[in-house]
């Protein structure tokens, strides 16, 4: 029983707002630091690839964005499912706030992939399973955003877009395993084979720093967005009035 009380308190919008205000810098600055360290490690310290030379360094920017495009979708789908099943408003706010973040990193993954594909494969785009399923992910995000915009009532938008988010999650394992299941120009899994990653340590650690940095960055940006989202959703409640009279750092900066 105690844990349920705790979850309810944590998921209550005013509590979330104050917690987010406190936590955002604690995620944002380590994220910036890790991304800078990862970028330096990837661009300068990592040895050149024996096949792809210096050009391989684009992976330090392509892989984390592709990873985040999928992580954000999973977060969005899980949050939408929680919102649909237990009718927790904060969960719907998390799902709604994730979509545009996820869409932006999907675009980044696609475009950096195209830019890297040209020198490595000789083509910006090929209609293989990995690229196509990642493009489908972008359409899922855009569909989700468009569907939400079609409703005036937030609760209806939550329910309809929530179903879309949950159904669309089947695309995530398809993206991940596409390079295993189908023939492709795209390289296979490299670091998720944890027992025997096919990458040397000097090359691996900057990538892991980037991935961790991106994850923290997502948490920070999501927390900022959800803060705005709960303000709109709870506009009639007293705690929002109090915050408007004395806005903290999220609102001012």
């Amino acid at each position: 029983m105690k844990i349920w009380n705790w979850i309810h308190k944590l998921a209550s919008p005013p509590h979330f707002y104050r917690m987010a205000e406190f936590l955002v810098p604690w995620f944002m600055w380590p994220a910036v630091l890790l991304i800078l360290i990862g970028a330096y490690g990837g661009l300068v310290l990592a040895p050149p690839d024996y096949m792809q030379g210096q050009g391989f360094r684009m992976i330090y920017f392509h892989v984390p964005s592709a990873y985040l495009s999928m992580l954000v979708y999973v977060v969005m789908a899980v949050a939408a499912a929680i919102g649909l099943i237990w009718r927790i408003k904060l969960a719907h706010a998390v799902a709604a706030s994730s979509a545009s973040i996820g869409a932006s990193f999907t675009v980044l993954a696609l475009v950096t992939g195209m830019v890297g594909g040209k020198p490595m494969w000789g083509a910006y785009w090929v209609w293989d399973a990995r690229l196509t399923s990642e493009l489908v992910l972008l359409f899922l995000y855009l569909g989700y955003i468009t569907l939400r915009a079609a409703f005036d009532e937030i609760s209806k938008a939550d329910r309809a877009s929530g179903v879309l988010a949950v159904v669309g999650v089947v695309n995530i394992p398809i993206i991940h395993f596409s390079v295993v299941w189908w023939n492709t120009l795209h390289q296979g899994p490299t670091i998720t084979k944890l027992d025997n990653p096919s990458i040397t340590g000097d090359m691996l650690w900057p990538l892991l720093a980037m991935i961790l940095g991106y994850t923290l960055f997502f948490v920070a940006v999501l927390a900022i967005r959800v803060s705005g989202e709960v303000l709109t959703r709870e506009s009639r409640s007293r705690w929002v009035g109090e915050i408007l009279r004395a806005p903290g750092q999220i609102g001012v900066k």
Partner: peptide, 24 residues
């Protein structure tokens, strides 16, 4: 190719921070 991926990354990261704050 390498530097344009770096540039695009910076653009998207900055966009996310700016857009989130504007949202609030």
């Amino acid at each position: 190719f390498v530097w344009s991926t770096v540039g695009l990354t910076i653009v998207v990261l900055a966009f996310n921070v700016i857009a989130a704050r504007r949202h609030v």
